[in-house]
Amino acid sequence: MSRFSILLAGHIAPTPALIAAVEGTRVIAADDGLRHAAELQVTPELWVGDFDSSPPRPAIELTSLPREPYPRDKAMTDGEIAIEAALTRGATGLLLVGALSGPRSDHAFAHLILALRYAARGVDVELFDGIERAWPLGPDRRAFDLAPGMQFSILKFSDLSGLTISGAKWPLDAVDLPFHSILTQSNEALGPIAVTVRQGTALLVAQADPKVR
């Protein structure tokens, strides 16, 4: 699998776990996401965006970085452009870094939508900022190696059918939930968990294990 890390402008904690996750991947920076490169100890192969929020003076070792500028008035976000650039270069897996928070909540929401979109196209997608991790969910049973006591939630983007959660303090067995239900908020792992969504659109958001941050 060709795995790319996409550096986005949201907040990150450059923990050992995040640095290890990015290590060995190919890296593309989206606009102000470039500021994460130094603390993650990587040099992107490409920097894209309209550069309206990028650092005015990137680190000296990044001044020769290949750039693809775009107009500010455009139909795609900088993160979307970076993801498409990765796919053009053969990406089959994406690690979205700095996607889960930031100075604008609409940007974080857009990143969640993008994660769901590309996962639906068969791309392996993970979001990680050093503090929280997130993964799109689907009809295939998926296991997640969470430590006992770790908090997690299922974020719904539609009504869900056949939601099953095992290995949690509050398990569910093939439950149907409307979009407006908050039943899946703030669950607790007893150890590794498994989640299946027979039909619907959702993500799992979990705390990173503090012992390996």
Rank of each mutant, 00 (worst) to 15 (best):
M150E: 14
D145T: 07
L160T: 12
S101T: 14
D129Q: 09
T164A: 05
P139L: 02
I83E: 01
P136K: 03
D145C: 00
D124H: 05
D159E: 14
T92D: 13
L137I: 01
L100F: 09
L127H: 04
P103Y: 13
L163M: 13
A134F: 11
S161L: 15
S166R: 13
D140A: 15
L146H: 04
G138C: 06
T88W: 04
A120I: 04
L116K: 11
G130Q: 04
G90S: 04
S153V: 02
G90Y: 03
A108C: 10
I165P: 01
S158K: 08
L127K: 05
S105E: 14
T164C: 06
V97K: 01
L146N: 02
F109E: 03
A115K: 10
R133T: 15
L146D: 10
E132V: 13
I81C: 07
P148E: 10
A108T: 10
L96W: 01
G93K: 01
L155S: 12
W135L: 07
R142E: 13
R121C: 11
I165N: 06
Y118Q: 06
Q151D: 06
S153R: 00
G162R: 11
E126G: 02
L137H: 00
A108D: 06
S161G: 15
Q151F: 02
P148R: 08
A147S: 14
W135F: 14
R89K: 09
F109A: 13
I81E: 01
I113C: 12
D159I: 12
A120Y: 03
V123H: 01
G102K: 08
S158I: 05
R104G: 12
H111K: 05
I154T: 07
R89A: 12
L155M: 14
A86H: 01
R121E: 13
H111W: 06
E132W: 13
R117P: 12
A115I: 12
I165Q: 02
V123Q: 02
G130S: 11
A82G: 09
T88C: 11
D124V: 02
A110E: 07
D124Y: 00
P136G: 07
G98S: 02
V123M: 08
S166P: 00
W135P: 03
I131R: 15
E84S: 07
P139Y: 04
G98Q: 03
P148K: 05
K156R: 15
G162Q: 09
D140F: 05
L94V: 03
S158N: 10
E84V: 04
A82K: 08
A99G: 13
L95M: 04
F128T: 01
V123W: 00
G149P: 02
S153K: 01
